[in-house]
């Protein structure tokens, strides 16, 4: 259940973004998760409220966007979309491939609320 540790890291980053944008709360958090990152979406959704409690993201909704697993073949150069335990080229069948997407664990975007007025005057 390392998803809790991952959520705690996420909350740390979201808190930094909120602080640097003078926001007092966060309404939405968008994270892209590749299946090969080793993180399970439903477990992350369960862990999120625990990590978010008492932070600027207390009321935030976590949106997880799964990314496809794609490999490029070293032999024929073609790209394929594949299953997580079969990273083999769909075109020529060779196993020597490079992962080009599918292991991401990326905070993409947050939506901030209650952004303090008068930011310019603080600059």
């Amino acid at each position: 259940m390392h998803e809790l540790a991952i959520c705690q890291a996420l909350i740390g980053q979201v808190t930094d973004v909120a602080r640097s944008n003078h926001a007092t709360s966060v309404s939405d958090i968008f994270v892209s998760v590749g299946p090969l990152s080793g993180v399970e979406g439903p477990l992350m959704q369960n862990a999120f409220p625990v990590a978010a409690a008492g932070t600027v993201a207390n009321e935030a909704k976590l949106h997880l966007r799964p990314t496809p697993i794609r490999v490029q073949c070293d032999e024929c150069g073609e790209e394929s979309e594949v299953a997580m335990n079969r990273l083999v080229c769909d075109h020529c069948g060779d196993w020597r491939t490079q992962l080009i997407s599918g292991d991401e664990l990326l905070l993409q975007r947050v939506i901030l609320d209650n952004t303090a007025a008068g930011v310019e005057s603080n600059v």
């Binding site: 944008n21 991401e104 990326l106 901030l112």
Partner: peptide, 30 residues
């Protein structure tokens, strides 16, 4: 990555949502 580049291309670094909240692109590994 090819999985997320469309999100970077669209909108730019800061954009506002219809509800008035401020949308901030982060693109940072968790």
């Amino acid at each position: 990555t090819p999985g997320n580049e469309h999100l970077v291309a669209a909108g730019g670094h800061l954009a506002h949502t219809s509800s008035g909240g401020e949308s901030v692109e982060v693109l940072k590994g968790l």
